[in-house]
Design a binder for these strands. Structure first.
Lengths: 214, 214
DNA sequence: CACTGTCTGGTACCTATCTACTAGGCGCGG
DNA sequence: CCGCGCCTAGTAGATAGGTACCAGACAGTG
């Protein structure tokens, strides 16, 4: 830690805020801000050119899901430590990001001190999960496995279309399957989400932050 | 501008980011950061005690809708200039905030320079709307008036309950009215939103950022 | 006062959706 | 090869929701 400073990069679509945070981190003796990216595409480019040690990555970006980009960013720069910046993380997001290779989470609602501490921890190879988030993750771990049923690819696809407000028939048309199939998928994903209807499933999905956009 | 510095306060539930932004603004020669609030309750208290000239207010706060709190904040401190910080503003949010007394909008996705410029403009009594947002507001203005139908109090209440995934019957029970009434409210608000079903109304509401939470 | 908008309650009809259960095809891992 | 999970498709009955009307109570306004 007394050697070269930690090279920190931030990817967040709220550029004014991200730039501010980076400026503040840059003033720490052991850190240097190497850049802000407002899109995933920018982040990809900058990970290559700016050689960051730690990347704070927002999970929601204009051009896609930040979590989904994690594997590629890691492939591009092995050894990079990625911590996901998040406002109100859906339960499954935590698991997904960890599986994708993130080393932790930093909640945007925590204090500056916690963020700088998280950056140092990430740089030194530790996992970073704020207590608040850890509390939500733990039940799933000692639940004996996948306590939280997770949706299949197709079910997620259907859920996305539900979120667009489409009827079962419309969804069937989009996916080129019968309404019966759609009905089954919805019944299944509803059960997994603990919902009793399409509407309730959507409400739950929204609350859990499962959906892109917005 | 050469007199006393502009006293700037930020209310945003992302405290780490808000604190960073404030720290950066504080370094401007003509500004001084006087505080960060993470909730509306805190903001109320601090507006009284810290005497800010300009308040950057997030529209989404843990304890309620920031826009809804604007009138009270202004009553508490007349002359306060409030600019709404926003990530992806729903169309109607723009109108509501202006009507509530905000002097403008600052999109979180813009650069730091634009934010500091916005603060100065707000302090000097000018309106602050970034071009990107203005472009969305204009059509409603020269639309001849309320081109965007706005929901009544009761309709919004119903919409919130819809967002919880409740059935019409459950909503009726909550509001202590008949199912028929709920059905009518939903028909009306759906028409206003351009939706053809409860589900679609919810989808639209989510996309427009009409709903609290999340 | 008359007009308007909102909230309320209602009727009638029709469609969409939910529930429950069945079942074939397909790919993957033991 | 067999079992398992997923995607697919179907049937049938019950319920919720949407459409299209109408109408009274009540508050605010010209």
């Amino acid at each position: 830690m007394s050697g070269s400073p930690i090279r920190v990069m931030i990817a967040d679509d709220h550029e004014a805020l991200a730039a501010s945070l980076l400026a503040v981190l840059d003033q720490e003796d052991d850190m240097v801000g190497v850049g802000v990216a407002g899109t995933i595409a920018q982040a990809r480019a900058m990970v290559g050119s700016s050689a960051p040690d730690v990347l704070l990555l927002d999970h929601r970006m204009p051009d896609g899901d930040g979590v989904a980009a994690i594997p590629e960013l890691l492939r591009q720069r092995p050894g990079l430590r990625i911590a996901v910046l998040t406002a109100s993380p859906g339960d499954h997001l935590l698991v997904e990001a960890i599986e994708a290779g993130a080393c932790g989470f930093v909640s945007k609602t925590r204090s500056l001190g916690e963020v700088t501490a998280a950056v140092r921890a990430a740089a030194s190879g530790e996992a970073v999960i704020s207590p608040e988030l850890l509390a939500r993750l733990l039940p799933r771990l000692h639940g004996g496995g996948p306590a939280q049923k997770q949706l299949t690819e197709r079910e997620r696809e259907v859920l996305d279309l539900v979120a667009e407000g489409l009827s079962n028939a419309a969804i069937a048309e989009r996916l080129v399957v019968s309404v019966h199939t759609v009905r089954n998928h919805i019944a299944n994903l509803s059960a997994k989400l603990g919902a009793h209807s399409k509407l309730e499933a959507l409400a739950i999905a929204v609350r859990q932050g499962l959906l892109p956009g917005r």
